[in-house]
């Protein structure tokens, strides 16, 4: 097993980089991070739109949420990779494809977390902010969202953990993220499948568990600033 690590650690970490495109664990982390950074503001906007009292805004977002939630990520991945280029004539790279799909899924799931948080907040919070003369946007930004996001932090972290794991679906379209690289190594070595996939599993575990712990610590720090009882 040590020999295995000694031979392939660099390939595992960065793929064929710098000779080829960046891959391996680095690509997995970059993709997850980029997806969340892009999906966070989108999810916030969609979540706010979802609770809008204007039906022209709320309904289409609601429909989008229902649609995306009811379709497997893998299927959307196929669509974007095989179907989209056929329509647009532009071939999207595996990395871009994966990023698009992750951002769409993340923003929709984050939107639901945000919307649920806003709905769960006592009505009096928005009313008292508005009765002081704050506009709807100001009331959201300074009163509603700070509480909503704190409530929703565990769910948001959950979503990030899911994102990291979902990048492994890129394997199907030949994206050289860490699962793909691991299976390549397995093909090369051939006799050490258990070891290779054990290392892969451990890698995901360390990444996701570490993130959960980090979020837990953050949550404890934030708990000093309480939120409204629901």
């Amino acid at each position: 097993m040590l020999e295995l690590i000694d031979t392939y650690w660099l390939y595992f970490l960065v793929g064929q980089y710098p000779e080829g495109p960046l891959g391996g664990l680095a690509l997995t982390i970059l993709l997850s991070g980029a997806a969340l950074v892009l999906a966070m503001p989108l999810g916030l906007m969609l979540g706010i739109a979802r609770v809008s009292t204007h039906r022209a805004i709320g309904l289409p977002v609601g429909a989008l949420v229902q649609l995306v939630r009811a379709v497997p990520l893998l299927l959307v991945l196929f669509w974007v990779y095989f179907f989209l280029p056929a329509v647009t004539g532009i071939k999207t790279s595996q990395t871009a494809t994966m990023l698009i799909v992750l951002v769409v899924f993340d923003s929709v799931y984050l939107a639901e977390i945000v919307a649920a948080g806003i709905r769960a907040l006592p009505k009096g919070q928005l009313e008292s902010a508005r009765s002081l003369g704050l506009g709807y946007g100001q009331a959201l930004r300074h009163v509603v969202l700070p509480q909503t996001l704190r409530h929703g932090l565990p769910s948001i972290v959950n979503q990030l953990v899911s994102t990291i794991k979902a990048t492994s679906l890129g394997y199907i379209i030949g994206l050289s993220e860490v699962s793909f690289v691991a299976s390549q190594i397995n093909t090369l070595v051939f006799t050490q499948a258990v070891e290779v996939y054990l290392i892969l599993a451990l890698t995901y575990f360390v990444l996701c568990f570490g993130l959960s712990r980090l979020a837990f610590l953050l949550e404890r720090r934030l708990q000093r600033r309480p939120v409204a009882a629901t």
Binding site: S128, S131, P226
Partner: peptide, 15 residues
């Protein structure tokens, strides 16, 4: 902004 309103449930901002 020119009219103060006090609620039965206080509705202070808890954060």
């Amino acid at each position: 902004a020119g009219i103060g309103f006090v609620f039965q449930q206080f509705n202070l901002f808890p954060h």
